[in-house]
Nucleic acid binder design. Structure first.
Lengths: 254, 254
DNA sequence: CGAACCATTGACCTCGTTCAATCACAGTGG
DNA sequence: CCACTGTGATTGAACGAGGTCAATGGTTCG
């Protein structure tokens, strides 16, 4: 039996947030020791879930707040008849479940896309954080706004772009986020999505996603092998997505 | 010359937030006098803009934070070639520009759909609010999450629903929000959208929006006259949108 | 080997887009 | 008073992007 809770690497519950390896990445702003100690005191668990597991069930009312420590996840929303829209993808360092924690009923689900490690914070103590640590509260709100910004992009993509443009835009967006985390090596990064997940994120059918995807691949936009995606023509992909290059400002890590 | 800043009704800058008529609506949670006084002290202007005016320009870096006091507005995002996606609609009591204030650069624009009245708060004092008024800070974050929730719905609609389903979902959603504000009389409410704006919100072409819209109208789903929309078959519209009935919980008004 | 899952490809059809013309209705200036 | 203009709604006709149905093949796993 493969126990996902005690996998290959050691648990980090005891390990110090002060020494958090994520925090060293250039994507994140520096924090005072006080803030980090507060975060550490608030952290009640370090949890590992296998790919495909639910992090937050749709409709859940007592969802905790998490930070994604490693792996990928996605937020999604389902219609009664089974159609599903993937709202956005979550990468290491992203908050998981802020909306569910604040609104006290998840209108969406969150699922692990790969095996994930999560830092667990009790939702009850979010209020504490607002009272005692306004800097962290502000950053919580900031991260919420940033997620909204990503969803704005996706909505614009799904509402206005053609199939190939949507694929280009999604790849570029994930590429940039992975890059900021230092996950890109010579233009390539781990890309764990199935075509069904791609389709659900793009608002396209599985078949049409597959056809458009391989057309772009054959056109030399990118390559996929061994679960890693390599951008062969970033400039072109950018242009196809009609995206300007953007800033690489640091963001908070909580 | 018609001065939009001194229209028919008197300015309310001097008027007390304690006596704010919006606050009486059943949609909003009660606040302590302390909180209301803090809000009032933070309010620096009461501004009136005509329909079509920009409240926040795309890319604006010094956007203020507003509360929509009366009228409708919408957030949108444009692509370089002119395509435009309306992200969500703003009704009285909604915060305007929170994302732009926190992220310090608007990735979107916000435009007045009708003539609007806005309570203006300086973005610089948001930080103040986090330090001195954690209850209000929490509610600010709450309202941000609620907006994200609305956008999640729209994304799901645009990504998964057919043209008629999208129209049904949009109408139901606006109907409910208007209802919560007491703006619905005998199943009808003011509906100021042009078909172009409808199309941009639904991710459909103008022509197809018009055809589908009038098909649903002729099918007896709803009627539109004198700028007011009347829901003739709410049950059916709900079912078409595949939406379950939802809660009517109170929300904060800042 | 069979079962499950995922990716791919062809054939066909439809929903939604594009192009274009018409109509209704304000203003507004002669 | 009426022609002139601009904006928004509506409708027809033709086309095309994307959906649906169905079959095939490759992998992994029991």
């Amino acid at each position: 039996m493969h126990d996902t809770h005690h996998g290959g690497r050691p648990r980090r519950l005891g390990a110090s947030c002060l020494a958090c390896p994520l925090r060293l990445k250039s994507a994140f702003k520096d924090k005072t020791d006080d803030e980090i100690r507060f975060i550490q005191a608030m952290k009640i668990d370090h949890r590992i879930l296998r790919a495909g597991a639910d992090i937050i069930h749709p409709g859940e009312e007592e969802a905790e707040l998490y930070t994604l420590f490693s792996g990928w996840a996605f937020r999604y929303k389902s219609l009664p008849d089974g159609r599903r829209q993937i709202l956005n993808f979550l990468l290491p360092g992203d908050l998981v479940g802020l909306q569910a924690s604040l609104l006290s009923a998840a209108e969406h689900g969150i699922e692990a896309l790969t095996e994930v490690e999560l830092c667990v914070f009790p939702r009850k103590r979010i209020w504490d954080l607002f009272v005692k640590m306004p800097t962290l509260a502000y950053e919580l709100a900031w991260l919420g706004s940033r997620e909204e910004c990503l969803i704005d992009d996706n909505l614009t993509s799904v509402g206005q772009r053609s199939a190939s443009e949507r694929i280009a835009a999604l790849i570029i967006s994930l590429y940039r986020r992975a890059d900021a985390l230092g996950l890109v090596t010579s233009n390539s990064f781990a890309f764990p999505l199935t075509q069904q997940q791609l389709a659900d994120a793009l608002g396209l059918s599985l078949v049409h996603t597959s056809k458009t995807w391989s057309r772009l691949r054959k056109a030399g936009l990118f390559a996929l092998s061994g679960g890693r995606l390599t951008l062969l023509n970033p400039r072109l992909t950018n242009r196809m997505a009609a995206i300007y290059d953007q800033e690489g400002a640091r963001r908070p890590l909580i």
